[in-house]
């Protein structure tokens, strides 16, 4: 992993790795995480909902864990993305360097174009 090195650079270069066919977003797209608060087992943390980031990579397509959690088969598979957010946009009171990033893996059904 070169995460530590990349976060030190001024402008990190995004990956172009794209293994999942039929994905809605591509690397570099700006996306907003849905501001939605459904009950049940959800894989998108509360604090990132409503925030805007950029697709860093497409991780692949996987059985939906929000369905697997209730004993279903998780089909159809959902495309998982790694999304890059600027820390100051995630935390209103963020006091670290403005270049700090947080990257999170988020399923396609939680994302909208931004």
């Amino acid at each position: 992993m070169t995460l530590g090195l990349r976060t030190q650079g001024a402008e990190p270069s995004p990956s172009t790795y794209a293994p999942a066919p039929g994905h809605r977003f591509k690397v570099g797209d700006r996306v907003a995480v849905k501001r939605s608060f459904p009950p049940g087992h959800r894989r998108t943390p509360y604090y990132i909902r409503g925030k805007t980031g950029v697709i860093e990579r497409i991780c692949g397509a996987f059985p939906n864990p929000e369905e697997l959690a209730y004993g279903f088969d998780g089909e159809p598979k959902k495309v998982l993305y790694r999304v890059r957010f600027a820390q100051p946009t995630v935390w209103p009171t963020y006091s670290g360097p403005a270049r700090d990033l947080i990257e999170m893996e988020i399923f396609e059904h939680w994302l909208e174009p931004a």
Partner: peptide, 16 residues
């Protein structure tokens, strides 16, 4: 944080 806190999982404590 704005919005409703309803349905926030007991395990979802990031930022607290």
């Amino acid at each position: 944080m704005s919005g409703t806190a309803s349905n926030r999982s007991a395990a979802d404590i990031g930022g607290d």
